[in-house]
Simulated scan of single mutants.
Amino acid sequence: MPAVFVNCVAVIVGSIIGLTFAKKISGKMTTVIQDAAGIITVILGLQMAFQFKNVIYLSLSLFLGGILGTVIDLDNKIENLGDNIEKLFFKKKVEQSADGTAVKSSFGYAFLNASCLFCVGAMTILGSFDAGIRNDYTVIFTKSVLDGFMAITFAASMGIGTIFSALAILVYQGALTILSTFLQPYVTEQMLAEITGCGGAMIVMIGINLLGLKKIKTANYLPSILIVVLFVLCEPGFMYIKDFITNLF
Protein backbone atom coordinates (compact mmCIF):
# COMPACT_ATOMS: atom_id res chain seq x y z
CA MET A 1 0.00 0.00 0.00
CA PRO A 2 2.81 2.57 0.56
CA ALA A 3 3.48 2.60 -3.19
CA VAL A 4 -0.20 3.32 -3.89
CA PHE A 5 -0.05 6.35 -1.61
CA VAL A 6 3.06 7.55 -3.46
CA ASN A 7 1.14 7.28 -6.74
CA CYS A 8 -1.75 9.28 -5.26
CA VAL A 9 0.60 11.96 -3.96
CA ALA A 10 2.29 12.20 -7.37
CA VAL A 11 -1.07 12.87 -9.04
CA ILE A 12 -2.05 15.41 -6.38
CA VAL A 13 1.27 17.28 -6.66
CA GLY A 14 1.16 17.18 -10.45
CA SER A 15 -2.42 18.48 -10.42
CA ILE A 16 -1.51 21.34 -8.08
CA ILE A 17 1.37 22.34 -10.36
CA GLY A 18 -0.94 22.19 -13.39
CA LEU A 19 -3.63 24.28 -11.69
CA THR A 20 -1.08 26.86 -10.55
CA PHE A 21 0.37 27.05 -14.03
CA ALA A 22 -3.07 27.34 -15.65
CA LYS A 23 -3.97 30.40 -13.54
CA LYS A 24 -1.02 32.34 -14.92
CA ILE A 25 -1.65 31.84 -18.64
CA SER A 26 -4.12 33.23 -21.13
CA GLY A 27 -7.08 31.42 -22.63
CA LYS A 28 -5.20 31.07 -25.92
CA MET A 29 -2.31 29.32 -24.18
CA THR A 30 -4.75 27.09 -22.32
CA THR A 31 -5.99 25.88 -25.70
CA VAL A 32 -2.42 25.14 -26.74
CA ILE A 33 -1.86 23.12 -23.55
CA GLN A 34 -5.11 21.20 -24.04
CA ASP A 35 -4.17 20.36 -27.64
CA ALA A 36 -0.72 19.21 -26.52
CA ALA A 37 -2.29 17.07 -23.78
CA GLY A 38 -4.62 15.57 -26.40
CA ILE A 39 -1.77 14.69 -28.75
CA ILE A 40 0.31 13.18 -25.93
CA THR A 41 -2.68 11.14 -24.78
CA VAL A 42 -3.38 9.83 -28.30
CA ILE A 43 0.28 8.81 -28.74
CA LEU A 44 0.30 7.10 -25.33
CA GLY A 45 -2.96 5.32 -26.15
CA LEU A 46 -1.75 4.11 -29.56
CA GLN A 47 1.48 2.83 -28.04
CA MET A 48 -0.57 0.78 -25.58
CA ALA A 49 -3.28 -0.28 -28.04
CA PHE A 50 -0.84 -1.95 -30.45
CA GLN A 51 0.29 -4.35 -27.72
CA PHE A 52 -2.80 -6.51 -28.25
CA LYS A 53 -2.25 -10.15 -29.24
CA ASN A 54 -5.67 -11.00 -30.63
CA VAL A 55 -7.48 -8.33 -32.65
CA ILE A 56 -10.74 -10.33 -32.46
CA TYR A 57 -10.72 -10.11 -28.66
CA LEU A 58 -9.97 -6.38 -28.87
CA SER A 59 -12.74 -5.73 -31.40
CA LEU A 60 -15.43 -7.80 -29.70
CA SER A 61 -14.61 -6.48 -26.23
CA LEU A 62 -14.88 -2.85 -27.41
CA PHE A 63 -18.17 -3.49 -29.23
CA LEU A 64 -19.76 -5.50 -26.43
CA GLY A 65 -18.27 -3.39 -23.63
CA GLY A 66 -19.40 -0.15 -25.29
CA ILE A 67 -22.93 -1.49 -25.72
CA LEU A 68 -23.10 -2.70 -22.11
CA GLY A 69 -21.68 0.56 -20.76
CA THR A 70 -24.16 2.58 -22.81
CA VAL A 71 -27.10 0.49 -21.57
CA ILE A 72 -26.17 1.12 -17.94
CA ASP A 73 -25.05 4.70 -18.75
CA LEU A 74 -21.72 4.21 -16.99
CA ASP A 75 -20.11 7.40 -18.32
CA ASN A 76 -22.77 9.69 -16.87
CA LYS A 77 -22.80 7.78 -13.58
CA ILE A 78 -19.04 8.26 -13.09
CA GLU A 79 -19.19 11.89 -14.20
CA ASN A 80 -22.06 12.48 -11.76
CA LEU A 81 -19.93 10.85 -9.04
CA GLY A 82 -17.29 13.45 -9.79
CA ASP A 83 -19.86 16.23 -9.56
CA ASN A 84 -21.06 14.85 -6.20
CA ILE A 85 -17.46 14.90 -4.94
CA GLU A 86 -17.29 18.53 -6.05
CA LYS A 87 -20.43 19.34 -4.06
CA LEU A 88 -18.94 17.59 -1.04
CA PHE A 89 -15.66 19.54 -1.05
CA PHE A 90 -16.66 22.81 -2.70
CA LYS A 91 -19.54 25.24 -2.77
CA LYS A 92 -20.54 24.56 -6.35
CA LYS A 93 -21.47 27.52 -8.48
CA VAL A 94 -23.93 27.14 -11.32
CA GLU A 95 -22.43 28.58 -14.49
CA GLN A 96 -24.60 30.00 -17.24
CA SER A 97 -24.06 30.38 -20.94
CA ALA A 98 -24.86 33.53 -22.92
CA ASP A 99 -28.46 32.41 -23.43
CA GLY A 100 -28.97 31.88 -19.69
CA THR A 101 -28.99 28.06 -19.71
CA ALA A 102 -27.02 26.12 -17.12
CA VAL A 103 -23.61 24.82 -18.09
CA LYS A 104 -22.49 21.50 -16.64
CA SER A 105 -19.33 21.71 -14.53
CA SER A 106 -16.12 20.34 -16.00
CA PHE A 107 -15.15 18.89 -12.60
CA GLY A 108 -16.84 15.53 -13.23
CA TYR A 109 -15.45 15.43 -16.78
CA ALA A 110 -11.89 15.96 -15.53
CA PHE A 111 -12.34 13.41 -12.73
CA LEU A 112 -13.69 10.83 -15.18
CA ASN A 113 -11.01 11.18 -17.84
CA ALA A 114 -8.09 11.41 -15.42
CA SER A 115 -9.35 8.37 -13.48
CA CYS A 116 -9.59 6.34 -16.70
CA LEU A 117 -6.11 7.40 -17.78
CA PHE A 118 -4.40 6.63 -14.47
CA CYS A 119 -6.19 3.32 -13.76
CA VAL A 120 -6.17 1.64 -17.18
CA GLY A 121 -3.02 -0.16 -18.24
CA ALA A 122 -0.60 -2.96 -17.54
CA MET A 123 1.58 -0.87 -15.22
CA THR A 124 -1.33 -0.56 -12.79
CA ILE A 125 -1.74 -4.33 -12.59
CA LEU A 126 1.92 -5.30 -12.69
CA GLY A 127 2.89 -2.59 -10.22
CA SER A 128 0.15 -3.57 -7.79
CA PHE A 129 1.15 -7.24 -7.95
CA ASP A 130 4.85 -6.50 -7.49
CA ALA A 131 4.06 -4.29 -4.52
CA GLY A 132 1.61 -6.73 -2.92
CA ILE A 133 3.50 -9.99 -3.49
CA ARG A 134 7.20 -9.10 -3.66
CA ASN A 135 7.26 -5.69 -1.93
CA ASP A 136 8.88 -4.38 -5.11
CA TYR A 137 7.72 -0.81 -5.76
CA THR A 138 9.77 -0.11 -8.90
CA VAL A 139 6.88 -0.28 -11.38
CA ILE A 140 4.51 1.76 -9.22
CA PHE A 141 7.17 4.42 -8.62
CA THR A 142 7.82 4.63 -12.36
CA LYS A 143 4.07 4.88 -13.00
CA SER A 144 3.85 7.58 -10.32
CA VAL A 145 6.36 9.75 -12.17
CA LEU A 146 4.49 9.34 -15.46
CA ASP A 147 1.12 9.98 -13.81
CA GLY A 148 2.48 13.07 -12.09
CA PHE A 149 3.55 14.65 -15.38
CA MET A 150 0.27 13.73 -17.09
CA ALA A 151 -1.61 15.21 -14.11
CA ILE A 152 0.14 18.53 -14.78
CA THR A 153 -1.20 18.70 -18.35
CA PHE A 154 -4.63 17.35 -17.47
CA ALA A 155 -5.14 19.75 -14.56
CA ALA A 156 -3.93 22.69 -16.64
CA SER A 157 -6.33 21.82 -19.47
CA MET A 158 -9.36 20.36 -17.63
CA GLY A 159 -9.27 21.72 -14.07
CA ILE A 160 -9.34 20.70 -10.44
CA GLY A 161 -11.33 17.51 -11.00
CA THR A 162 -8.03 15.90 -12.03
CA ILE A 163 -6.68 16.02 -8.48
CA PHE A 164 -9.56 13.89 -7.18
CA SER A 165 -8.68 11.07 -9.58
CA ALA A 166 -6.22 10.16 -6.80
CA LEU A 167 -9.27 8.70 -5.02
CA ALA A 168 -9.86 6.34 -7.95
CA ILE A 169 -6.19 5.30 -7.85
CA LEU A 170 -6.41 4.69 -4.10
CA VAL A 171 -9.49 2.47 -4.41
CA TYR A 172 -8.66 0.56 -7.61
CA GLN A 173 -4.90 0.19 -7.29
CA GLY A 174 -5.19 -0.38 -3.56
CA ALA A 175 -7.69 -3.20 -4.11
CA LEU A 176 -5.41 -4.83 -6.69
CA THR A 177 -2.49 -4.66 -4.27
CA ILE A 178 -4.48 -6.21 -1.43
CA LEU A 179 -5.91 -8.96 -3.69
CA SER A 180 -2.68 -9.50 -5.62
CA THR A 181 -1.86 -12.89 -4.06
CA PHE A 182 -5.25 -14.26 -5.10
CA LEU A 183 -5.34 -12.70 -8.59
CA GLN A 184 -1.73 -13.19 -9.66
CA PRO A 185 -2.05 -16.83 -10.86
CA TYR A 186 -4.75 -15.81 -13.35
CA VAL A 187 -2.85 -12.90 -14.89
CA THR A 188 -0.83 -14.20 -17.84
CA GLU A 189 1.36 -12.34 -20.31
CA GLN A 190 -1.41 -12.58 -22.89
CA MET A 191 -4.00 -11.18 -20.49
CA LEU A 192 -1.77 -8.20 -19.71
CA ALA A 193 -1.28 -7.60 -23.44
CA GLU A 194 -5.03 -7.73 -24.16
CA ILE A 195 -5.88 -5.49 -21.19
CA THR A 196 -3.20 -3.02 -22.27
CA GLY A 197 -4.48 -3.01 -25.85
CA CYS A 198 -8.08 -2.46 -24.75
CA GLY A 199 -7.07 0.22 -22.24
CA GLY A 200 -4.95 1.91 -24.89
CA ALA A 201 -7.95 2.18 -27.19
CA MET A 202 -9.86 3.97 -24.42
CA ILE A 203 -6.94 6.33 -23.81
CA VAL A 204 -7.04 7.22 -27.52
CA MET A 205 -10.72 8.11 -26.98
CA ILE A 206 -9.71 10.47 -24.16
CA GLY A 207 -7.18 12.11 -26.48
CA ILE A 208 -9.83 12.57 -29.17
CA ASN A 209 -12.07 14.25 -26.59
CA LEU A 210 -9.26 16.57 -25.50
CA LEU A 211 -8.62 17.57 -29.10
CA GLY A 212 -12.31 18.33 -29.57
CA LEU A 213 -12.56 16.03 -32.59
CA LYS A 214 -15.55 14.13 -31.21
CA LYS A 215 -17.27 13.68 -27.85
CA ILE A 216 -16.80 10.02 -26.95
CA LYS A 217 -18.26 8.71 -23.70
CA THR A 218 -15.08 6.86 -22.80
CA ALA A 219 -16.24 5.36 -19.51
CA ASN A 220 -19.03 3.52 -21.33
CA TYR A 221 -16.27 1.31 -22.74
CA LEU A 222 -14.84 0.33 -19.33
CA PRO A 223 -16.74 -3.01 -19.32
CA SER A 224 -14.54 -3.90 -22.31
CA ILE A 225 -11.69 -4.58 -19.85
CA LEU A 226 -13.73 -7.22 -18.03
CA ILE A 227 -14.93 -8.74 -21.30
CA VAL A 228 -11.42 -9.08 -22.74
CA VAL A 229 -10.35 -10.74 -19.46
CA LEU A 230 -13.19 -13.25 -19.86
CA PHE A 231 -12.14 -13.94 -23.46
CA VAL A 232 -8.59 -14.76 -22.35
CA LEU A 233 -9.79 -16.93 -19.47
CA CYS A 234 -12.14 -18.83 -21.81
CA GLU A 235 -9.55 -19.28 -24.56
CA PRO A 236 -8.79 -22.93 -23.66
CA GLY A 237 -12.49 -23.63 -24.12
CA PHE A 238 -12.52 -21.83 -27.47
CA MET A 239 -9.55 -23.93 -28.63
CA TYR A 240 -11.28 -27.14 -27.52
CA ILE A 241 -14.42 -26.24 -29.50
CA LYS A 242 -12.30 -25.33 -32.52
CA ASP A 243 -10.43 -28.67 -32.40
CA PHE A 244 -13.69 -30.55 -31.92
CA ILE A 245 -15.28 -28.92 -34.98
CA THR A 246 -12.09 -29.46 -37.02
CA ASN A 247 -12.07 -33.17 -36.13
CA LEU A 248 -15.72 -33.50 -37.17
CA PHE A 249 -14.90 -32.36 -40.69
Rank of each mutant, 00 (worst) to 15 (best):
residue 1 M to I: 09
residue 5 F to K: 05
residue 7 N to E: 14
residue 15 S to Y: 03
residue 16 I to T: 02
residue 16 I to Y: 11
residue 19 L to Q: 11
residue 21 F to W: 07
residue 21 F to I: 12
residue 21 F to C: 09
residue 24 K to N: 11
residue 24 K to Y: 02
residue 25 I to H: 03
residue 25 I to A: 05
residue 26 S to C: 11
residue 26 S to E: 14
residue 31 T to F: 00
residue 31 T to M: 04
residue 32 V to G: 03
residue 33 I to F: 12
residue 34 Q to H: 05
residue 34 Q to T: 14
residue 36 A to H: 00
residue 42 V to T: 07
residue 43 I to Q: 12
residue 48 M to I: 11
residue 49 A to M: 15
residue 51 Q to H: 12
residue 52 F to I: 14
residue 52 F to E: 10
residue 53 K to N: 14
residue 54 N to T: 15
residue 55 V to C: 11
residue 56 I to R: 04
residue 57 Y to H: 06
residue 61 S to Q: 02
residue 61 S to V: 09
residue 62 L to E: 02
residue 62 L to G: 00
residue 64 L to Y: 06
residue 66 G to S: 08
residue 69 G to L: 07
residue 69 G to E: 04
residue 69 G to N: 10
residue 76 N to A: 05
residue 84 N to L: 14
residue 89 F to W: 14
residue 91 K to Y: 08
residue 93 K to G: 10
residue 96 Q to M: 15
residue 105 S to M: 10
residue 107 F to Q: 01
residue 113 N to V: 02
residue 113 N to W: 00
residue 115 S to Q: 04
residue 118 F to K: 07
residue 119 C to S: 09
residue 120 V to H: 00
residue 122 A to W: 00
residue 122 A to I: 09
residue 123 M to D: 12
residue 132 G to W: 02
residue 134 R to S: 11
residue 137 Y to C: 01
residue 141 F to N: 09
residue 145 V to S: 13
residue 154 F to A: 09
residue 158 M to Y: 08
residue 161 G to E: 06
residue 165 S to D: 06
residue 166 A to S: 15
residue 167 L to W: 04
residue 169 I to F: 06
residue 171 V to Y: 07
residue 172 Y to K: 05
residue 174 G to H: 06
residue 176 L to W: 08
residue 177 T to K: 04
residue 177 T to E: 10
residue 180 S to Q: 08
residue 189 E to G: 15
residue 189 E to T: 13
residue 190 Q to P: 01
residue 195 I to H: 03
residue 199 G to P: 00
residue 200 G to V: 08
residue 202 M to R: 07
residue 203 I to K: 02
residue 204 V to G: 00
residue 209 N to P: 09
residue 216 I to N: 03
residue 217 K to A: 15
residue 221 Y to P: 02
residue 232 V to A: 02
residue 232 V to E: 05
residue 232 V to I: 10
residue 233 L to K: 13
residue 235 E to S: 13
residue 239 M to E: 14
residue 243 D to E: 14
residue 244 F to I: 06
residue 245 I to L: 15
residue 246 T to N: 13
residue 246 T to M: 12
